[in-house]
């Protein structure tokens, strides 16, 4: 039996600043994972990844990351991806500083 596809979002780092960003349905990049396109179909996800990677002048290192649907939009399921939505734990730097969460 083929392994079931777990839902994904596309994420990368912004070329100039290097911060984590997520790919939206509008083909733009958002600093908030809730804005990401939620991908539930494998073939569609692979296609969108190619489209995302084509924006090489905006981002670097795009990849598919596991996600789940939450109240405000997609959310990370793995702790690594969760850290990328916040920033480091030793200083209030990164996204947690910009978002004041």
């Amino acid at each position: 039996m083929p392994r079931q596809f777990t839902p994904k979002v596309i994420t990368a780092n912004r070329l100039l600043e290097g911060d984590a960003v997520w790919f939206t349905t509008q083909d733009t990049w958002s600093g908030n994972i809730h804005d990401a396109e939620f991908l539930t179909d494998e073939a569609h996800a692979d296609l969108r990844l190619l489209e995302a990677q084509a924006q090489a002048h905006v981002i670097a290192g795009a990849y598919l990351a596991d996600a789940k649907q939450g109240d405000n939009g997609p959310e990370p399921t793995h702790f690594r991806e969760a850290f990328r939505t916040r920033g480091p734990s030793n200083y209030p730097h990164g996204k947690q500083e910009q978002n004041h969460v």
Binding site: E17, A56, H57, R80, R84
Partner: peptide, 26 residues
């Protein structure tokens, strides 16, 4: 790289030669 004439695949070995990594947040 910024004006788009180098791809990330081309640029990465060059930046690494100069000690520049891309990490989780920056």
């Amino acid at each position: 790289r910024i004006d788009g004439s180098l791809t990330e695949d081309e640029f990465k070995p060059l930046r690494l030669m100069n000690g520049l990594y891309l990490q989780l947040h920056a």
